[in-house]
Amino acid sequence: MNVKQPVIVIVGPTAVGKTKTGIELAKRLNGEIISGDSVQVYRGMDIGSAKVREDETEGIPHHLIDIQEPDEEMSVARFQTLARAAIDDIAARGKLPIIVGGTGLYIRSVLYDYQFTEQAEDKELRAELERFAAEAGVDALHDRLAHLSPERAAQIHPNNVQRVIRAIEVASSGMEQTQASEPTSHYDSLIFVLHMEDRDQLYERIDLRVDQMMEEGLLDEVETLVSRGYAETKAMQAIGYKELVPVVRGQADLSEASDALKRNTRRFAKRQLTWFRHQFDGVWVEMGRLSFEQNFKKIYDRVAGFLNQG
């Protein structure tokens, strides 16, 4: 009998408590953490991606952080390969792999048996999408992308029609399930979706997080990245960076950019939760009503039972 490797997964929108939850689990269960975030892979993109600082890790190793430069594009297929290699390495050393992050498409590609093919242009689909954009408008086209991939939609402005169309092509044909109906699980995974039922509470935490990022020097971080020639890279289209590049260039007001960053992050959090609800068969944990300690106990007890059942 082929026994699958146990993997614990912590997903959820920004500012909901994923990082702390993952570290506490790793401390108690001899685990190591794999970042499931599409921006934390880039060196120098620290504050805007809420990358865990060295003094916050409490000695827990973190993988897939700072592994490439911002002008080196990360694909879903490459992330799948790297994450699975990290899981194998962690498990081989007798430790528990714990994936923590908010990039649902990346994490799902790791957990399930997806195969990737070369992205040839689909001229028929492209023509159909161009007609759709002309008839229904660019916002409707962007909504179509958001339905397929909230992460990609959050990185591309609706007015950039060609990039939106290309992203829809990739999202539509770039990831093929090995099974036509239900995807096959690559691991014995237990997924927790952290959330807050009170949206106002979550949005307040997001706004506070953005204010904290600004105080910690996010604008300086963006300025450094721009000075190194990364302003036009795909990585810099991520929320937290694209809003501040115009400020660095003297083309926008800092206060307005900060407000836009908060607004975009709130919208992204909403899309993330919708995506998790439809794409992950996970245990939903409401983080807003009880203390962190109380919520963590529920998660820990569930994980302990899951690991002991084998």
Rank of each mutant, 00 (worst) to 15 (best):
H195K: 10
M1V: 09
D139N: 10
A134E: 13
F116P: 00
Q40Y: 07
E54I: 11
G48R: 06
V100K: 01
I168E: 05
S49I: 08
G282M: 03
A92F: 01
K51H: 12
V245W: 01
M287L: 02
G12Q: 05
Y112K: 05
L105M: 12
I107R: 00
R53C: 03
N264M: 02
A134D: 13
E124N: 11
A83N: 01
E286N: 13
A86P: 05
S172F: 00
G282F: 00
T224V: 10
R84M: 08
Y114S: 01
R131W: 15
L129E: 03
A171N: 04
W284D: 02
K27P: 00
Y112I: 04
R163A: 14
L64P: 06
R266M: 06
D143G: 11
V3Q: 14
E56M: 03
E73M: 15
W284Y: 09
A77L: 08
V16E: 03
G229R: 13
A92V: 04
I60F: 02
F276N: 03
Y203E: 15
P70R: 02
M214C: 08
R266K: 09
S173L: 10
I299D: 02
A86F: 01
R131M: 14
M1C: 14
D113G: 04
I65R: 15
Q5E: 15
H157Y: 02
G288Y: 01
P158L: 06
V161Q: 10
E124W: 11
Y230H: 09
Q119F: 13
R93C: 03
W284V: 05
A231G: 05
D188P: 01
A26K: 00
V138D: 12
Y203R: 14
L29W: 00
E72I: 07
